[in-house]
Simulated assay, not measured.
Amino acid sequence: MTMTSTQRLACALTAGAALVAGLAGCVPLVIGGAAVAGAGMVATDRRTSGAQLDDQGIELRGAARVRDIANDDMNVTVISFNRQVLLVGTVGNEGDRRRVEDSVSRVDNVRSVVNEITVGPGSTLPQRSNDAFITGKVKASLLDQKDIFANAFKVVTERGVVYLMGIATRREVDRATDITRGVPGVQKVVRVVEVVSDADLAATQARQGGTGAPPPPVQDGASSSSARVPLPPMAPLPSTGGTAAPAPAGSGVTTTPVR
Score class of each variant (00 low, 15 high):
2 T>C: 02
4 T>R: 05
5 S>K: 12
5 S>P: 04
6 T>N: 11
6 T>W: 09
7 Q>Y: 04
8 R>F: 08
8 R>T: 04
16 G>D: 10
19 L>N: 04
21 A>I: 07
22 G>Q: 07
26 C>I: 10
29 L>Q: 11
31 I>F: 13
33 G>E: 04
35 A>F: 15
35 A>S: 14
39 A>C: 10
40 G>P: 02
41 M>F: 14
43 A>L: 15
43 A>F: 10
45 D>T: 01
45 D>G: 07
52 Q>E: 11
53 L>W: 14
53 L>H: 09
54 D>G: 07
54 D>L: 08
58 I>Y: 02
59 E>V: 03
62 G>P: 04
62 G>T: 01
63 A>Y: 08
64 A>I: 06
66 V>N: 01
67 R>W: 11
71 N>Q: 06
73 D>P: 00
73 D>T: 15
75 N>P: 03
80 S>N: 03
81 F>D: 13
82 N>F: 00
85 V>D: 01
86 L>Y: 02
88 V>E: 00
90 T>Y: 04
95 G>Y: 09
96 D>F: 04
99 R>M: 10
100 V>F: 01
101 E>A: 14
101 E>C: 05
102 D>K: 12
111 R>I: 14
115 N>C: 09
115 N>V: 09
117 I>T: 08
121 P>S: 15
126 P>I: 07
130 N>L: 10
130 N>M: 11
131 D>Y: 02
132 A>Q: 11
132 A>Y: 07
133 F>R: 15
133 F>I: 08
134 I>G: 00
135 T>S: 13
135 T>E: 12
136 G>N: 03
136 G>K: 03
140 A>C: 02
140 A>F: 03
140 A>R: 08
141 S>P: 01
144 D>S: 14
145 Q>K: 15
147 D>Y: 04
150 A>F: 09
153 F>N: 02
153 F>L: 07
154 K>Y: 07
154 K>A: 09
156 V>C: 04
157 T>C: 09
158 E>M: 08
161 V>L: 01
161 V>C: 07
164 L>G: 03
165 M>C: 09
166 G>E: 05
166 G>P: 06
171 R>H: 10
173 V>K: 06
174 D>G: 06
175 R>P: 00
181 R>Y: 09
182 G>D: 14
183 V>S: 03
183 V>P: 00
184 P>H: 09
184 P>G: 06
186 V>G: 06
187 Q>R: 15
189 V>G: 01
191 R>E: 06
191 R>G: 02
191 R>N: 11
193 V>Y: 05
195 V>P: 01
198 D>W: 13
199 A>T: 14
201 L>I: 00
207 R>G: 05
208 Q>S: 12
212 G>H: 05
215 P>K: 08
219 Q>F: 12
219 Q>K: 14
223 S>K: 15
225 S>M: 04
226 S>I: 09
226 S>Y: 08
232 P>Y: 06
233 P>D: 09
233 P>L: 05
234 M>Y: 07
236 P>D: 07
241 G>H: 03
243 T>I: 14
243 T>G: 13
248 P>F: 08
252 G>Y: 06
254 T>N: 13
256 T>G: 05
258 V>K: 13
258 V>N: 14
259 R>A: 12
